[in-house]
């Protein structure tokens, strides 16, 4: 689960760089030649900073993203659904773990990244600050949110930073069932009772716009894209990915017999794409600023888990020290 460029590299960041020009040139040439950059390789400071920010933001999104779906695990309506949802949320937890490890190879500890999240310095995907109100939200999230995430993530399997690319390969492989299980839930509901169909339509209405906002701001308002594209940290533009997502998702919605909450949505023969209505970027930026409906709940749940876990982490570390001393004696 992923949103591009919630935080910008400031122009100041880049201009202050004291990186030796000959090293920068060699680095740029390697990246341009599709070589992978590995942890001990020389890299420009801005590349390192941008990567830490992007990978940790991605990791935070996975971890905070366990909460909206975690909200329904204990209420899943069948044993099969319960096992599937539990396994899916567990995957997200694992994906956060892989990504934190990838970011750690750049010299920032997981603890530092978690502190940045808890203090509000680091961002995570806006989508997780919306509440999950009914069981149909499990369907809509798997189908739309994971669908959007997959579209964002697949190109990153070829990103320039080796540990990040390898983490993305593993993540994409594991996520292949996430979207399918979501769509299956939607199909069951859409073909179910009137109450279930209403639930499915309501979930689609609420998750549609936030999902297409997941691709980030429009390209003309995305000033760092050129650099990120050149560095292969970002591989396709926000608007291109968004359009592709809409084009593949609309027929899926129609197959469910559901309607999309966008009166301007229609197929444009000339463009060979769907046209869609204006996106409420005010809403998007408000959620980025932390004004999402359940932003406070999400953050307090994460902080509580971390703080409640402090004595556990400390106990295990203390035991390891004692045991090492006993073994040495």
């Amino acid at each position: 689960m992923y949103t591009t460029e919630l935080q910008k590299v400031s122009a100041l960041d880049n201009s202050l760089s004291a990186d030796p020009p000959e090293l920068v040139a060699a680095f740029e040439a390697r990246v341009a030649a599709d070589a992978f950059i590995e942890p001990k390789d020389w890299m420009p400071q801005a590349y390192r900073r941008t990567l830490v920010r992007q990978i940790s933001q991605h990791a935070h999104s996975e971890i905070v993203g366990t909460l909206p779906e975690g909200n329904w695990i204990t209420r899943a309506p069948s044993l099969r659904r319960k096992a599937v949802l539990l396994a899916k949320v567990q995957d997200e937890c694992g994906h956060g773990l892989y990504l934190y490890c990838a970011a750690e190879t750049l010299g920032t500890s997981r603890e530092q990244m978690i502190e940045a999240l808890h203090s509000g310095k680091a961002k995570y995907s806006t989508i997780f600050n919306y509440p999950t109100l009914t069981w149909a939200d499990m369907g809509a999230i798997g189908w739309l949110v994971d669908g959007a995430a997959i579209m964002n993530q697949v190109p990153l399997q070829r990103t320039s930073y080796g540990p990040y690319a390898r983490a993305m390969v593993r993540i994409c492989k594991e996520e292949s069932f996430h979207q399918r299980q979501g769509y299956e839930i939607m199909m069951t509901l859409a073909n179910g009772s009137a109450a279930q169909k209403r639930m499915a339509q309501d979930a689609l209405n609420r998750w549609w716009w936030p999902s297409i906002m997941m691709f980030g701001p429009p390209d003309d308002n995305s000033p760092n894209s050129a650099q990120s594209m050149r560095w292969r940290i970002k591989r396709e533009s926000n608007d291109d990915l968004r359009q592709r997502f809409i084009d593949v998702t609309v027929p899926q919605a129609l197959a469910l017999g559901l309607t999309l909450p966008d009166p301007e949505l229609k197929w444009n023969e000339a463009r060979d794409h769907y046209d869609y209505g204006p996106i409420d970027w005010e809403e998007f930026y408000a959620v980025v600023r932390g004004e999402g409906q359940v932003a406070k709940e999400r953050m307090s749940a994460r902080v509580k888990a971390w703080e409640d876990g402090a004595w556990v982490r400390e106990a295990a570390a203390a035991h390891a020290v004692k045991k090492a001393k006993r073994n040495a004696a």
Partner: peptide, 14 residues
């Protein structure tokens, strides 16, 4: 394991 443990702060992450 001793080395790894001793270098980790007891309060922080493992």
């Amino acid at each position: 394991s001793d080395k790894a443990t001793n270098e980790a702060s007891l309060k922080g992450d493992w």
